[in-house]
Amino acid sequence: MNDDKLVIAGIEFTSRLWVGTGKYKDFEETKKAIEASGTDVVTVSVRRVNIIDKSKENLLDYIDPKKYKILPNTAGCYTAKDAIRTAMLAAEAGITKLVKLEVIGDEKTLFPDNEAMLEATQVLVKEGLIVLPYMSDDPIMARKLVDIGCPAVMPLAAPIGSGLGIRNPYNIKIIMETVKVPVIVDAGVGTASDVAVAMELGCDAVLLNTAIAGAKDPIAMAEAMKHGVIAGRLAYKAGRIPQKLYATASSPLEGMIGS
């Protein structure tokens, strides 16, 4: 798999599993889970620095930015204006121009607001940011985002944190046929087989957070996800057999006794 690298906007990624840093018990657990996942990309949010409690530990003391690519997101933004502001600050705080853009449309579903996404993407691309958009599993939206300069798209598998897995594999397939950029399934996967399914479909990577952080044993689940991605990717490249309704014998019939 070493020659099977993912490249987005000239940046080379060694892992096809990207993980978030939210919802862990503490930074120690975050660190161990991230190590077990084998990832080289971690997503982080952009928040006000705590000016009262300066003793609070910093995530970057545990997640070495030299070892991992830090992918800031605009989580929590409900308007294009807030997302643009947050993304610009993220680009200034970070070392790359890479940002995972989220503009949430609704608190209950956390589904993206497509119109606001397009608006924010347009501005940020002009500002020179590399925008990876979190989007609905909508091929038309994917095409529009790529047309205005996104070097990859990140359709959801199911609502964020739902663990429902890939609800619409056919749309994910159509997105992959519609755009000629990497497709990263983002959000909604629940367990290792979901990740394997995404990779078997031909997706380029999977980003997840809750499925690991919320598992009873996050570190073991992180390792399971790592294997899920590797297995799914290998199966996709190996080319599966066609599905048929009836049996096909796998042993030769020649030389059977009594024939």
Binding site: G22, S45, R48, P72, N73, A75, A90, E102, L208
Partner: peptide
């Protein structure tokens, strides 16, 4: 003045 930094958070959190 606003001072922001990277914090834990995967997706909408």
């Amino acid at each position: 003045v606003e001072v922001v930094a990277f914090m834990a958070g995967g997706m909408d959190s």
